[in-house]
Nucleic acid binder design. Sequence first.
DNA 1: CATATTTAAACAAACGTTTAATTAACTTTG
DNA 2: CAAAGTTAATTAAACGTTTGTTTAAATATG
Lengths: 211, 211
Amino acid sequence: MKPNLSIKQSQLLDTAEMLFSRKGFDGTSVRDIAESAGINTAMISYYFGSKEKLMEEIFERKSLNLREKVDTLLKDDNLDPLQKMFSLVDEYVEAIMSRKRFHRILLCEQIINQNPTIIQMTEKMKARNSECMNDLIRLGQKKGMFKKNIDILMLTNTLIGTISHTMLNMEFYKNYHHLEAMKDDEFERLLKKKLSVQLKNIYKAILTHES
Amino acid sequence: MKPNLSIKQSQLLDTAEMLFSRKGFDGTSVRDIAESAGINTAMISYYFGSKEKLMEEIFERKSLNLREKVDTLLKDDNLDPLQKMFSLVDEYVEAIMSRKRFHRILLCEQIINQNPTIIQMTEKMKARNSECMNDLIRLGQKKGMFKKNIDILMLTNTLIGTISHTMLNMEFYKNYHHLEAMKDDEFERLLKKKLSVQLKNIYKAILTHES
DNA sequence: CATATTTAAACAAACGTTTAATTAACTTTG
DNA sequence: CAAAGTTAATTAAACGTTTGTTTAAATATG
């Protein structure tokens, strides 16, 4: 991890993230970024070395890591395995919905990215977070609360896929339900709640012995 | 809809789809496309007018329309509402998994696209397919088999989100489960089956009265 | 005085598209 | 049936922009 950032560096990173998330990496020029940030174009190379490395820096700083949260959850004696799982679900909903811009970039880059550094970072992130999911499920299975034959990745695909696709189609959802008048933060809270309820239902149905 | 395509036009469209799905629209140059297709660069403008219109043509020809399938399903007296829903789920799995390249492009373009024509086409597609989902759910509700308070879009988000995210992470799944030796088509059949089973479980749990 | 920051300008390379000339394919005509 | 005429397809080259990055001079900072 790099040292602290100057104000201008933060501005550039933030502006770049915003533009990348709206127009993609290749659709955003360094002049776009610099101009939007009100900073000279050459400063991007000066600070980060290149446009590519700027992108890598964004990934470095915004990548999701749930290890600590999950470790705390694992130790918590007040929650049963399903409640711990529910907590992780909410963690994912919150993480993605509060990092919409980065997550849009991540989605794009998973498809079109060729940069080895970024590929490596996303692979590591996936492995890390799959392990977290795995730990929580193993616990539930050990306690006899969860079924034995759970496809962890498949379940994670539903979790992340549902949240991502909901995020990408927020506007469509808003129009479909005629919620144009609703305030942005209120609408976001609504969506998060909907996601939370639905995903917990799904997790309960797939993980536990019932029906 | 445009008239039939010449062989070269088809080659260009197919090559473009392949490259767009791997490197994105902005990351693919017309020279890339022409060279990969073994055709002169100028032919792209000659045939399609522009790179943008070439992309629009891909959307025109590859967009998903389930209306007919769903109409046939609605009329089928041999299936109950849940079975019809299951059939639609499989239809989505098949449609996306067999159109992986186009669906990757679609995902990217949903995020970064600025082209009004393409925005309009995707919006229309979403509306069309939501209506299909809606029709099937209303039927199940009328017959008393489905719950009353179903959020159709949220359910669709889980459906498409799960399939999309599974498609984007096929390689990760393969490595995680040490299936590198498995043949491509066999692996794809496995994934489709996994998707089908999991999504049907989810749909049953959310749509019907149980537990 | 020395180091770090900032600037405008310049760089070559790549971009999408157009042009004008050439070749191929097809129709009409004697 | 072949020659002439006409349209369509194909090409290499050139167009003007825009791209990411570098440079060298200027300014600010310690």
